[in-house]
Structure formats: structure tokens, C-alpha cells
Amino acid sequence: MTRKSNAEFVKWFGPLLDALRDLGDSGRPREVSDRIAKNLNLTDEVLDETLKSGDSRFHNQVAWARQYLVWEGMLKSSKHGTWTLTEKGRTAHISDAQAAEIFKKWVAIHAENRKQKAAEQGEATEEEAPTPDTPQADQKMSLIAILRSLSPLGFEKVSQELLRESGFENVEITGGSADGGIDGFGTLEINPFVSFKVLFQCKRYADGNLVGRSQVGDFRNAMIGRAEKGIIITTSSFTNAAVVEANREGAPKVELVDGAKLVEMFQRVELGVKKRTVYDVDLSYFERFRD
């Protein structure tokens, strides 16, 4: 990837701030991305483009835009997944030229930081900031690769264990070709008085092979009369049309778990992964003390 293509995410700086203002100064990552897509009337072609990991390129770029705005002091650095504007961010309106300057500024800061670290360790380093398509020490792709390497039945079984660890009871795999598109079912208890049956479908897909609208519709049809809720779990992602279909008004809602969310679920219950703590220097904190 060239540096030019890696820096494409700077175009989302201004739209990201606008989206957060529309949402009341804060929002969950997907809410923010969806609002940007709505505000700019982005096409399915843009929204369905994926990275090698199978993640949405658009959502990935918006996440990187958010990171640069955190460094710039326009967004808070939340530990709980909510993106929130700071006072500086609430009043900021960023032009394309200003976005480019912010990007260059933090490229230089990170390059200098790595130079100093390399000098201390006696190692060579590249003068380039982290970029969306070359994440540093990212374990997500390796976990997705492992899940994709499992057999179809193996992926269903590990999904079964994940659902059990996530609070589902009586989780069973249906198996066989006569399952009507249903790979398994379980019961989710909301409280001692309320519980409901959930059906799930597992799609062990490779890069770029997205779950489409028709597959969501077929799964919902298979649910009718059998369960109140349905979940589609994939190692890939979903087309924008599939997301719209899953949330269509007047139809049973289908929960969609893509590769990124799947990794988060494994990490949350620490299933098949080992937790470790790594501390990185928060450069944005020290930036205000440079003057």
C-alpha cells in the first residue's frame, strides 16, 4: 500500500465530528459510522469494500480517523467503546486542508518517537506513522485466520462454546443438511421470568466473501415459527444491504456478528485467548506540555 492510500482516512475527520454532533456529542463506533454513511449518502460499493482481514474498509478508516482526533484532543480516549467529543471537538469544523495538516503533524510526532526509541535500543526504524492497513501488533487477524482454518463443524462447535460462555443455556448444534439453514439453537434467559429461544447460523467465510441480503432473508424465513431471535455469525462481514435487511421494520430482527465483533466476544469471555496488559505512551497527553 502506498502512503497516499494509507492516508485516505483523513477525509473522514470532518464528517466524524459532524456525525457525533448529530448524535448528541457521543456515540458507539457503529452508530457513528452509520451516521457518516447516512449524512454523505455513501453507496453500497463503498460500504461493502473490505480489508484483507475481512473487516469493512470504511469502518476501519473511520476508526483511524477517530484515533487521530483523539491525539488532537478533539475526542476523549474512552476505555468503554463510546466515542465522545471534547469541548475542543464540539466547536471544531475541519477542512480537507486542516485534516491533512493534523495527519502530517502526528506522522511527524510518531516518527520522532520511534526514532528516539530505536536510538535507545540501537535498532533501525521506518519514518512512518501507524496506518489503517498496517496495524501494529494486531492479534485480530491471527484469531480470524485460526477460526477460518477450522472445519465447518469445528466452527459451529466453537460458536456453540462461545454462546455458552456468553450466557446462553441448552445450546445445541442441529447438524446435517436438513437443518433448513439453522446450525443450532439455545435459550437466553433475561431474568427468572423471561427467556426466549435463539437460533444461530455459522458462516466460516474467507476474505471478501460477504454475507448478503438474500442469506439474511433466507435465515429469517427459516426462523419463522421456531424462535423469537436469530443470530448469524461469520468470520467475514456483511454487505450494507444485509445490515438493512437484518434491521427491517416489521420483520423479526436478526443479530449480525461479523469478524470484528466475533473477536471482541472471544476476548470478552477470554475463550481461546490469553489476556495480557501492554501500556503505550499517550502522546496526546504530553503534547500540551511541549510549549
Rank of each mutant, 00 (worst) to 15 (best):
M1V: 13
R268K: 08
R35A: 08
D280V: 10
H80D: 15
S236I: 01
L150T: 00
L143T: 05
N39G: 07
T131Y: 03
N170W: 09
K4P: 14
L20H: 01
Q116Y: 06
F185S: 13
T2M: 13
E72C: 06
N247I: 14
S142Q: 03
I146S: 14
F13N: 02
T187P: 02
I231Y: 00
F196Y: 14
V273K: 06
V278D: 00
E264I: 10
K197Q: 06
F196T: 10
A251T: 12
V70G: 05
G208R: 03
K157E: 13
I109K: 04
N113T: 04
N41D: 10
A119P: 08
H59E: 07
F9I: 00
K117M: 12
R57S: 04
D291G: 11
I224D: 06
I144W: 05
F13T: 01
E112A: 04
R30H: 15
E264H: 15
R21C: 09
A99G: 11
F196Q: 09
F196K: 14
A92C: 11
G184A: 05
L210K: 00
S151T: 08
R226K: 04
R30G: 05
N209T: 06
P192Y: 10
Q136I: 15
F286E: 11
E189V: 14
I173N: 14
A7M: 03
V281E: 12
F200C: 07
Q121V: 13
V62E: 02
E172Q: 15
K253F: 01
A63K: 00
K261D: 07
M265D: 06
I173P: 04
F266N: 00
V263I: 07
N39A: 07
A241T: 01
E249T: 07
T134N: 10
V281F: 13
L16S: 03
E49N: 09
G180E: 01
T134G: 08
P29F: 00
F103C: 11
A19I: 01
E264F: 14
W83I: 04
F238W: 11
V254D: 05
V211P: 00
L262D: 02
E49R: 11
L85S: 02
E31G: 06
S33K: 04
K117P: 03
S26C: 15
F185E: 11
P135R: 07
G184R: 06
L199T: 02
E287T: 06
N221V: 12
R226W: 10
V211R: 07
A241D: 06
N247H: 11
G212F: 02
R66V: 11
S142T: 09
Q67H: 15
G272E: 09
G259L: 05
G225D: 01
I173D: 11
L16C: 06
L150Q: 02
A100V: 09
A111C: 12
V10G: 00
V263Y: 00
P130Y: 14
V70C: 02
D44E: 09
V194Q: 15
E161N: 08
F286P: 08
L143F: 05
E87G: 12
L75T: 05
H80N: 15
Q215T: 15
E120W: 04
A145F: 12
N170A: 08
L143R: 05
G154Y: 06
E264M: 11
D207M: 04
